[in-house]
Design a protein around this nucleic acid. Sequence first.
DNA 1: CTGAAAGCGCTTACAG
DNA 2: CTGAAAGCGCTTACAG
Lengths: 338, 338
Amino acid sequence: MADEVSLKDVADTAGVSLATASRALRGLSTVAPATRQRVELAARRLGYVASFNASSFASRKTNSIGFIVPYVDRWFFSKVIVNAEQELRRYGLDLVLYSVGLEEEQRRRFFTELPVRRRVDALAVLCLPLRESEIAALELLRIPVATLGTRVGDHPCVRIDDHAAATTAVRHLINLGHRDIAIITGQANVDLGFTSSGDRVNAYQDTLLAAGIEPDPRWRVDGDFTAASGDHAMSQLLSRSPLPTAVFAASDEMAFGALGSLRRHGMRVPEDLSLIGFDDHELAEPLELTTVSQPVPEQGRLLGRLLLEQLSGTAGQHDIVLPTHLAVRRSTARRLPS
Amino acid sequence: MADEVSLKDVADTAGVSLATASRALRGLSTVAPATRQRVELAARRLGYVASFNASSFASRKTNSIGFIVPYVDRWFFSKVIVNAEQELRRYGLDLVLYSVGLEEEQRRRFFTELPVRRRVDALAVLCLPLRESEIAALELLRIPVATLGTRVGDHPCVRIDDHAAATTAVRHLINLGHRDIAIITGQANVDLGFTSSGDRVNAYQDTLLAAGIEPDPRWRVDGDFTAASGDHAMSQLLSRSPLPTAVFAASDEMAFGALGSLRRHGMRVPEDLSLIGFDDHELAEPLELTTVSQPVPEQGRLLGRLLLEQLSGTAGQHDIVLPTHLAVRRSTARRLPS
DNA sequence: CTGAAAGCGCTTACAG
DNA sequence: CTGAAAGCGCTTACAG
């Protein structure tokens, strides 16, 4: 692109210095309105676009925000990322993605080599509870950090109350008369250690106990948040006896898999078994899944805003807990008197 | 980060010049092995990481690839993006996302303001058939372009044969004895004009005609690839009379929505109606949906590779058409003699 | 195989 | 409100 229009061209055309042209185009307030107009006109005429690289380099900012995520091609994460990205793009910031979920080795490398160093102005950590050593590594960066789902140190965080939300789900089943309630957890991914997963299991147990029901360990099966694991988990539950009358799946995607298993086994929902999920995935409504609804796009937007606030030094509230609610659909019903 | 280790520090420690240090760390071949070792050791000792901005700027490369996409939070696109990104990251390239799908205004701005200018080294266009004026705008950039799903000018492309794939789906229904076959298209998004959507509709009509069946316009309902639209479309079909005995949904997500509608209407699949989708979404297997399977991750990887090849001047094959296959599951069955 | 020097295209104190 | 000049931290001809 040897023929790209440079800021110098704009400055010359407008009859001002490089410095003034730069200030005018960035909207700095120390430029006379008339001057600004001339510069803007020249820039438009010449079709000038600033070099991202050059201006980032000169200003010692990267204009990029790093996102450390376990997965990007899962419903929850893709929604969060899209919405955070839109929030950041308004301020000219790029989102650069780092997937560290899959392998321990990948994660270790990320935190030792710190590829984000000198590469991003701030960092978002999504649903990854960090170890002490990892937190220490991040502090070395000396850049703002915000997290989603799980608090990391004192960094600002946006999340939901997983324990309370899961409690709502289990209590809904209990209120419908169920006592034989199984759970499909997300705990198979122990290495990632999503806190939300643990919180949901704990809520399940606490809520049962509070209702005077002893949680039966045979009615807990661990999935990994995928539909396939939900399918498999439900098949395991259906091979046991006695059968539960209701199942709480810790994510909608697992619930969808469970739905498949139930159909293959000739079990009707909710007539033979009630099923409740967690998330309010967009398929939950068409598939009539009762679930705990959480505001995913809003979490993404707020995460973006937390980062923005820190970069501009106007950091506000630090631990934002968003509300969830029960979306009652057809997949849960009153327990039949048996 | 006033205290970041610079290349100068590394050079001094290793007792070489800046230039040599730079060459050694980038693995250029014109460095003596012993020298290289000394430099690498020094870099490791000091914990040196090159400034992305500075090296990009100095080398007049952005080390970023732009992805123009209609959506990023839909199954197909998120899979493609993840896989392309992994391919690119191996070569130190970042993927920067531009969503231009939603509003016409957004799209117009993208192609007139060209925010990718001076911002990316190459561009990927995903499933967006471009207009002449838009193609012209891209050519102005004078950077490599590769596309997914739809050819744009002569640029390299990776795709499937949508017409052939959809033909397989419809023929499967015909082979099962169905003649009253409806279609849920993706044509509601006319503004985006996905070619895949049109190709699938055409294949549907062509295949019916080839079998001596006159396509009935009442059995075509337009969706927009979302589950909600599939749900709605199926409800419309079910309100008509006579009913089709089989339905081809142009995407799995629409098929899932259709499944919801069918259940609410008390229709059994496949006993009362056969349903076939398109994509092989991960929920297709648990939900037992017969579908046309396309290799989505591979399309992402190949797209990344096409871009890489062009950047390194080793461009190979230019129009890669990947195979698809029918995944037969429980949602389709032989038409009952009525 | 190595080094000295120019330069990438902006932004930013500093001075006025 | 504006300009001259330094400088951001690397890479890249060029020369040897």
